[in-house]
Design a protein around this nucleic acid. Structure first.
Length: 619
RNA sequence: GGUCUCGUAGCUCAACUGGAUAGAGCAGCUGCCUUCUAAGCAGCAGGUUCCAGGUUCGAGUCCUGGCGGGAUCACCA
């Protein structure tokens, strides 16, 4: 069964063929909703054919309109305005459209296509809790997974956990020194926060040590070298911190020693490492659960960091890469305007790039995914460009299905977040905060209506949770992923206007009506009903849903869904203010509207569901 | 400096991938709750779409060159 838009497209396509012998693919024909200023429901843009047919828009439009009227019972009339053919469709066409929506439980969802979609997101480090940046990442990735599931893919959700390296050792070091052999539950903290606090502590003691060092003779002599170049002392020490850590720091040396021990498999060190990481995972799981996401499979860097090496060496022999005199292995991408990039160190140890090559390979072996999408911030655009190019040259069978879903950073009004300084918006805090805000907002409006106060405590809590999370998630997803965004934790999230709660409110209003309607029998028949424009607008919007899902999938852009849901909700709110359902002017109006709003609610719920946002029954 | 990316109302964002007079929300101002949930609706006001050229029936959208912000240019991940 086809929606009206598709029907018009194929009619126009057939019409062009029969009248002008012109081949035009149905999907390529541009059909818009007619602007309010003009008479009509749908607009067909004729300009593309003017040139190809060498005829005036008027000739084409007149003949096409005749064809449409003769060949479709749905097209009742139309008018031509400078190259735009505005056609009107019959009330029956709208009712047919509603029937399609009602009959098709999985409207907007495609049947199983036998393909697999894999998405990687979150990808946390185990030395600190998740923050605002992760939230955008997680929500984008999760929404994409849902969208591709709706498109008929089997979906695999993964994260790669960065559980090794010097950063983890820093937390371990600080815990050993200051942890008093305690643990998260004794301290009443969430595991990831507990461990993260030691990471912050570590950076504090390192900073103290560094400050003290700056007044030593050793430091003076290092600075004196640079002073000749006219670098101010304060500026010098600001930029020297990393090198200090590597060359002079006692704390740094001990931490690096810890890393070496870990790599050598030292039992005690590994046990400590495992203990801290397990605490962190417990904390992460809680955060993920609060956000409503779950992973099919976790990859740990401690397992995968050696992978890829064999693969690189193999392709070196095939002449794809080259070896520098020092023994390191490189790929030369200068022929496509990119740089040379190192793939394997002289000592044979692997790098970020090597790891990612290896991980991609084992993932493909494990899941045979047709698409593999990485949700990673745009600061890694270049890395993924190189990675994908290298995999392509290596002849990876999955190379064409790789995609980097790059998104802009989330910034605070004060600038970037600095996790080392503890200057971050914590994910768990933020979630708690928005839920509290939803509660405050609800109680304020409930003071007059008294709707929620009578519900059991549990039920109220669930409502606040859904509304708060709905607000947060919607705000994060509604902007185009490519763009950076500013998030002000002081304002937290809005509950009015273009927001999650606005859309949820549309759904809630419908549920409220349906609860009342179901109390008495109403007529089912509305054959003689004549539609209002606002009712047609709802049908137009709903019939467009599958296209929006497809577009969101093609562009890896959940914000399209977010905008769509808002527009549908807005159309509904307008309709709601204009037309009564319980007190409809006739039985057929009541029957029609009942069916109409039932479908509106379904699509609101479905589309928001794709974004991971749940609908409350009341609010 | 090279590469990538963004620039639309005071602020946060749209614009169906080149279509009609660039739309929403927030903030400001006016109205609408004894009538289906006012987390709502209606209205006022707010624009040289960063600038200059070009492509064409038509450009916020594509091309060229500037200007401005961000990212990146590690044998870190």
């Amino acid at each position: 069964m086809k929606g009206i838009t598709e029907e018009l497209q194929s009619l126009v396509s057939a019409g062009l063929k029969s009248i002008f012998a012109e081949e035009a693919e149905a999907q390529s024909i541009v059909i818009n909703q007619t602007k309010k200023e003009f008479e009509g429901d749908y607009t067909i843009v004729l300009f593309p054919f003017v040139k190809r047919l060498k005829k005036s828009p008027k000739d084409i439009g007149d003949e096409l309109l005749n064809y449409l009227k003769e060949n479709s019972s749905h097209v009742t009339g139309g008018s031509l305005v400078s190259g735009f053919l505005n056609v009107s469709v019959s009330d029956q066409a709208w009712k047919d459209q509603l029937a399609i929506l009602t009959a098709d439980e999985s409207f907007g969802e495609s049947p199983d296509n036998g393909k697999t979609f894999m998405v990687e997101f979150s990808s946390p480090n185990t030395n600190k809790p998740l923050h605002l940046g992760h939230i955008r990442n997680i929500l984008l990735g999760h929404a994409c997974a849902n969208i591709y599931k709706a498109m008929g893919y089997k979906v695999v959700i993964t994260q790669i956990i960065n559980d090794r390296g010097i950063a983890v050792c820093k937390s371990m070091y600080a815990w050993e020194k200051f942890g008093n052999n305690s643990n998260p539950s004794e301290e009443g903290k969430k595991g990831d926060h507990y461990v993260g606090d030691f990471y912050v502590k570590y950076n504090q003691i390192l900073a103290e040590e560094y400050t003290q060092w700056q007044s030593t003779d050793e430091a003076k002599s290092v600075y004196n070298e640079k002073a000749k170049e006219g670098v101010a002392e304060a500026d010098f020490f600001k930029t020297y911190k990393n090198q200090y850590f590597n060359d002079f720091s006692k704390v740094g040396a001990e931490t690096k020693d810890m890393l070496l021990k870990w790599e050598a498999g030292d039992e005690e060190t590994v046990a400590l490492w495992k203990k801290l990481n397990d605490w962190v995972y417990e904390g992460f799981d809680e955060t993920y659960e609060n956000l409503g996401v779950a992973f099919t499979k976790n990859y740990y860097e401690s397992d995968t960091y050696l992978l890829g090496r064999a693969s690189v060496e193999e392709h070196l022999e095939k002449g794809l890469f080259f070896k520098k005199p020092d023994g390191s292995i490189w790929v030369d991408l200068e022929d496509i305007g990119m740089d040379q990039k190192i793939l394997l160190r002289a000592d044979g140890t692997s790098l970020y790039m090597t790891q990612d090559i290896g991980t991609a390979n084992i993932r493909y072996e494990e899941f045979k995914a047709d698409k593999m999408v990485y949700v990673v911030g745009n600061e890694q655009d270049y890395h993924f460009k190189v990675l994908f190019e290298v995999l392509k040259r290596m002849g990876a069978p999955y190379a064409d299905g790789l995609y980097h879903l790059s998104y802009g950073m989330v910034e605070l009004p004060t600038g970037k977040m600095k996790s080392r300084e503890g200057k971050v918006v914590d994910a768990d805090d933020l979630v708690q905060e928005v839920i509290a805000e939803a509660e405050a907002s609800a109680k304020e409006s409930d003071r007059e209506s008294g709707r929620l106060g009578v519900l059991p405590e549990e039920e109220q809590k669930e409502i606040f949770r859904r509304v708060g999370l709905g607000a947060l998630k919607y705000q994060m997803i509604r902007v185009n992923p490519r763009k950076g965004m500013v998030f002000d934790p002081k304002d937290s999230v809005d509950m009015h206007g273009v927001t999650g709660p606005y859309i949820q409110n549309g759904f809630v209003r419908i549920q409220s009506i349906l609860r009342r309607l179901n109390e008495d029998q109403i007529a089912e028949d509305f054959a003689d009903y004549i539609l209002f424009d606002d009712e047609k607008e709802l049908l137009i919007a709903m019939s467009n849903y599958p296209n929006v899902v497809k577009e969101a999938a093609d562009n890896y852009d959940p914000s399209l869904i977010a905008n769509y849901s808002y527009n549908l909700a807005k159309t509904f709110h307008r309709f709601y203010n204009e037309r009564s359902i319980l007190k409809a002017e006739s039985d057929s109006a009541k029957a029609f509207r009942k069916q109409l709003i039932t479908e509106v609610a379904k699509i609101l719920e479905k589309s928001m569901g794709l974004l991971g946002i749940e609908m409350p029954e009341r609010m």
